[in-house]
Design a protein around this nucleic acid. Structure first.
Length: 479
RNA sequence: GGCCCCUUCGUCUAGCGGUUAGGACGCCGCCCUCUCAAGGCGGAGAUCACGGGUUCGAAUCCCGUAGGGGCCGCCA
C-alpha cells in the first residue's frame, strides 16, 4: 500500500521547532517509502486565527526543502486541504453518527477548562456527564425549535478499554473510564481537532499518523471514532517532545523555539534539519552529519526514541559549522555576502575572504564581527596583546620585529600570498627564529585583535600593501 | 486528584542477558601550525534514577518507589 503521511499544523504565526521535526519525520518517512507527503492546514479555531500565518507555514517548508506533494497551494485528489473549507464534510459525517446513534446533540453550557484540578477531589475528574445523551427525541425537537445552540458529542461507552500499538511507545492501554463524550462539532459549526483529524486522515488516505506524544492519551478516543464509522485506523507514531534548556518546555521566549529565530541567528536550514532529526532519532551508526538525501536514505521510524530531548544550541552550532564547511565555495560566498559589512565588500576581495574564513564560521550571524577589523583598525587596542609567552614575544621584541618587517614589506615588489609568506619566512630564517615570534606581532599589528578569523599573511594580503604598512606604523608608534 | 508515558557522562545518544558501558557536542591537555581556530591524538566526565526480585550472570527481563513530562478545553 502506498504510504501517505501528513503535516497538519495549525496557523499560529510561527513555525515551532518541535512541529518542524514532526514535519521532517513525516516527510522523511514518505520519501523513504516513495509515498506521498501532504500538507493540511488545521484552522478550525476561529478565535485564534493569525493573519499571515499560513504564509509562514509555506515559507518554512520551502526554506527547509520539505516540499509537499498535496496541499492547499498544490491541490490534490482529496482536497480541500484547509479544514475551514471542509465544514460541509464534517457536517455530513457528524450527521451520519447522529443517525446511527453514535453521537448526540448537547445543549449544555460551555464547560471551561479547569486550571487547577481540585485538590480535595477524591475520584477522577469525570468530564462531561453525558446528560444530553438521555434527552428524549421530543426534548431535542423542542430545544431545536427554540433555537437553542448546541454541540455534537460522540457517545462513548465507558465500559472496557482500548489498547493500541504505537510504533514508538509500544502498546498503550487506556481505560474508557478516563474518556468522556468528546465534542465533535462546536457551537459555531466548526469541528474540533478530535473530529476533523479523524475524518480528514481517513478521507485523505493517511496511512501513518505522526504527531507529538501529547496526543497519546486521547488516541483511544480517535480510535473509537474510527470504529464508529467502521473505518480501519492508520498506524500511529507519537514523538517525544523537544525540551528547552533546563528541561522546560521549549518556549518562544528563549529565542530558539521558532524556525525564524534560528534562521535569524545564521543557522543553515540543512543544519537545522540535520540537528532536529537527531533529537529523538539516530541511525544506529556513528554518522552525525546528514544531508537531506542522507536522512531520507537512513531514516527509520523503528529507531525513534521515547525520551524527550533537550535542545542544545551549542551542538547545533557545531553541526552548522560542518554544513558551512561543506558548502560549495560559490554558495558559501553568496550566503556570506549578506553578512559582510558594506565597507568590507567594497574595499576587499570578498571572494578571497570567503575562501579564507569558510572553515571558521559557525553561525552566519557571527560573520560581521569576524571581519570588521579589515575595514577599520580599532587603533585603541592594547599593546599588551603583543606579549605572548608561548611565542616568546615582548613589547620590545615586537617593536623590533615590526620595524624590520616593515622595511622588508615596503621593499616587496609583489603583494600576493606567496610573496608575503616567503618574505616573512625569509626574515624569520635569517634571524634564526621560528615563525611564531614573527607572525604573532605581525597579526596583532595589522588586525588589532588577539583572535582573527584567518592568519597574518592572508590578512596582509587582503589589506593590501599600503594599509598593511600603515597599520605597522601605528603599532610601532604604540610600542 | 485520576490515567498514560519517560529516566545511560552536563547535553544528544549507542546498548536490546555476559562490553574495560561505545560515540558526538562542550570542557581540559598534547601535536601540527602563520596566533586563535580547523585538523590529528589523548584525558576527565555515567555507582546505567533508586529499591527489590528473576538469573550462573542485568543498563538490558519483572515488580515497586522517586523524579520529570503529558492528558483530563466548544485549543490543537
Amino acid at each position: 500500500m502506498e504510504v501517505r503521511t501528513r503535516f497538519a499544523p495549525s496557523p499560529t504565526g510561527y513555525m515551532h521547532i518541535g512541529n518542524l521535526r514532526t514535519a521532517l519525520y513525516a516527510y522523511l518517512y514518505a520519501r523513504k517509502n516513495k509515498g506521498v507527503f501532504i500538507l493540511r492546514i488545521e484552522d478550525t479555531d476561529q478565535a485564534r486565527l493569525v493573519g499571515d500565518s499560513v504564509k509562514v507555514i509555506y515559507e518554512s517548508l520551502a526554506v527547509t526543502g520539505l516540499e509537499h506533494d498535496e496541499g492547499p497551494d498544490k491541490g490534490g485528489p482529496v482536497g480541500p486541504y484547509v479544514q475551514s473549507e471542509r465544514c460541509p464534510i464534517y457536517r455530513e459525517y457528524a450527521d451520519k453518527l447522529l443517525a446511527s446513534g453514535r453521537a448526540y446533540r448537547c445543549f449544555c453550557e460551555k464547560h471551561e477548562k479547569q486550571e487547577e484540578p481540585d485538590e480535595e477531589q477524591d475520584g477522577p475528574i469525570l468530564g462531561y456527564d453525558g446528560r444530553c445523551s438521555r434527552l428524549s427525541e421530543a426534548e431535542v425537537r423542542a430545544n431545536l425549535a427554540k433555537g437553542l445552540p448546541f454541540v455534537i458529542r460522540q457517545k462513548i461507552d465507558r465500559e472496557g478499554s482500548t489498547t493500541f500499538k504505537d510504533f514508538v511507545y509500544g502498546d498503550i492501554t487506556v481505560d474508557h473510564k478516563q474518556l468522556d463524550d468528546q465534542i465533535l462539532l462546536k457551537r459555531d459549526g466548526f469541528p474540533t481537532y478530535n473530529f476533523a483529524n479523524v475524518v480528514d486522515d481517513h478521507l485523505m488516505g493517511i496511512t501513518h499518523v505522526m504527531r507529538g506524544c501529547e496526543y497519546i492519551s486521547s488516541t483511544p478516543k480517535y480510535l473509537l471514532l474510527y470504529g464508529a464509522f467502521g473505518w480501519s485506523a492508520p498506524e500511529h507514531i507519537h514523538l517525544p517532545h523537544i525540551m528547552g534548556p533546563n528541561g522546560k518546555k521549549l518556549s518562544k521566549r528563549e529565542g530558539s523555539a521558532a524556525l525564524a529565530d534560528l534562521l535569524g541567528k545564521g543557522f543553515l536550514p540543512e543544519a537545522i534539519l540535520n540537528y532536529i532529526a537527531l533529537l529523538g532519532w539516530n541511525p544506529g551508526t556513528e554518522q552525525e552529519f546528514f544531508t537531506k538525501a542522507d536522512l531520507i536514505e537512513k531514516f527509520d521510524i523503528a529507531r525513534i526514541g521515547k525520551a524527550p530531548a533537550m535542545f542544545d544550541e551549542t551542538k547545533l552550532a557545531w553541526l552548522n559549522a560542518q554544513h558551512v564547511k561543506a558548502l560549495p565555495p560559490a554558495k558559501a560566498h553568496e550566503l556570506f555576502l549578506k553578512f559582510y559589512p558594506e565597507a568590507v565588500v567594497k574595499g576587499f576581495d570578498a571572494v578571497k575572504l570567503t575562501g579564507y574564513i569558510q572553515g571558521k564560521v559557525e553561525k552566519l550571524a557571527d560573520i560581521p564581527a569576524m571581519v570588521v577589523f579589515l575595514a577599520k583598525l580599532e587603533e585603541q587596542y592594547s599593546a599588551e596583546l603583543f606579549v605572548h609567552a608561548k611565542n616568546k614575544t615582548t613589547l620590545e621584541s615586537s617593536k623590533a620585529t615590526l620595524a624590520e618587517l616593515q622595511g622588508i614589506l615596503t621593499a616587496l615588489p609583489a603583494w600576493d600570498y606567496a610573496s608575503i609568506l616567503a618574505a616573512v619566512k625569509g626574515y624569520a630564517e635569517a634571524k634564526g627564529a621560528k615563525l611564531g615570534p614573527v607572525m604573532w606581532p605581525l597579526r596583532i599589528a595589522i588586525s588589532g585583535q588577539a583572535v582573527t578569523p584567518t592568519g597574518a599573511v592572508e590578512i596582509a594580503e587582503l589589506l593590501g600593501q599600503p594599509e598593511t604598512l600603515r597599520r605597522l606604523s601605528v603599532a610601532i608608534a604604540k610600542l
